[in-house]
Simulated assay, not measured.
Amino acid sequence: MNYAIGIDIGGTKTAIGLVDSEGNVKDKLSLPTDQSVSPSEMVDRMASAVRQLADQAGLSIESLTGIGIGAPGPLNTKLGQISEPPNLRGWWGFPVVEAVKRHFDLPVFFENDATAAALAEKWIGAARNSQHFIYITISTGIGAGIYSHGRLITGASGNAGDVGHFVVAPEAGQCVCGQEGCWEFVASGTAIARQASELLGRPVSTKEAIDLAVSGDHPEMTALIERIFKYIGVGCVTLINTQDPEMLVLGGGVSQVGEPLFNAVKDYVSRYALNPTGRETRIVPAALSQDAGLIGAAALVHVSY
């Protein structure tokens, strides 16, 4: 059995896993993404964690097939750099691939985290039988991985799928990117919590907002969540009209709402996708949840893309 390391770098935590060539996570651990230290120091900690996982599994570093890294964009896969992700400001311009290679004489693969998760869903998840699909993660932000004609579509610098910055509601206010009314500004988990907190005049989590809406006991919250589900539908229709996928795979924390979200999005798509076949696009939940990021990162090593 061949093993690869998957590293999923996030704004608050970094997941690291030892993943075999069938997509099974043999062992894993999580490190806080400590932004009070330099990125180089964080990579040192990641390297120690990789060695710990290999030792626990009785494997030598040299026996590993490679290391895959998924990270939030914008990034530059040609240069191996994390460019300007809003939630990793201390990492801007950091050459992460070069830093990892200082520790290990192994192949290192690097892609946007949503792109990597899309590859994982193709490998062992909900899109195994699809040649044209888009994986959409709706969580802290919104991002996508695009798989078409049997391969990942990554773009010139690895940033294809940065769909959270489609403008869907210009009247809604200014996104961190500077545009007005971006998709993730109005429909991400962060957006839900922000708008619900403004509505109730107290801190409200995404989960609480959705629970209040689904209960039916708070009409204003129900109206808010219905509007957000509509915005999610708007973004999905835009992707269907642009990319003509046969399937959308929805992942991320907000997708855990389940049936209310999926029913609303399917209804919107069935009415507003331009092409008749687009209106019938399958919309399914991601099969991989907690480990999607690190499995996706390891998939960059194990799977041809």
Rank of each mutant, 00 (worst) to 15 (best):
S205L: 06
I7H: 13
T14C: 01
E84A: 14
P260Y: 01
Y305K: 13
S40C: 02
P260M: 06
I136T: 12
F104P: 12
E98F: 09
P95F: 09
E171M: 14
V204R: 04
G158S: 09
L250C: 02
G10R: 08
N263C: 10
S30I: 15
I124R: 12
P85H: 04
G178A: 13
G258Q: 06
I136E: 09
E22H: 08
F229R: 06
E259V: 07
R45Q: 15
N2H: 15
S197F: 00
N24G: 08
V176H: 11
G278I: 05
L88M: 08
H302Y: 02
T238D: 12
D8G: 00
Q195E: 14
V214F: 06
R128I: 02
A292N: 00
P170E: 15
N129D: 15
R45N: 12
A71M: 03
L18S: 00
P39C: 10
H302F: 00
I153L: 15
S304P: 00
E184F: 09
E280C: 00
F109P: 03
C182K: 00
D267C: 02
K78V: 14
K122Y: 07
I232P: 03
L212G: 04
A47M: 02
H302A: 00
F94D: 12
G181P: 07
G233I: 10
R45W: 06
S139D: 06
A117C: 13
V214Y: 01
Q256M: 07
L200I: 06
S188L: 04
T277F: 08
G201C: 07
A156T: 14
W183P: 08
A187F: 10
E111F: 02
P260V: 03
G233H: 11
W92E: 07
G66H: 02
E208N: 03
L274R: 05
S215E: 10
G141S: 02
R271Y: 07
C175N: 07
K28P: 05
H302R: 12
G181L: 13
V168G: 12
P285W: 02
F104E: 09
T222E: 15
L53G: 02
L53V: 04
S48L: 15
A191C: 10
L212Q: 11
S289G: 12
R102T: 14
G181S: 13
E98C: 05
G235D: 01
A71E: 06
D44V: 05
D55I: 07
G68W: 09
Q81H: 10
T12H: 09
A292K: 03
L224F: 03
A4Q: 07
T140M: 14
I153A: 12
E184A: 09
I295F: 04
S40L: 11
H132I: 04
I210L: 04
Q174G: 11
H218D: 15
A117R: 10
F262A: 09
Y305Q: 15
K207A: 09
G181C: 11
H149C: 10
G66Q: 00
L288E: 00
K28L: 11
K266D: 01
V284E: 01
S38H: 01
P39G: 03
Q35L: 13
S48I: 14
I136G: 01
T277R: 09
G181I: 11
S188G: 01
G155A: 10
H302Q: 12
A49L: 00
D34S: 07
S83A: 15
G181V: 11
I153V: 15
V257S: 09
G178L: 14
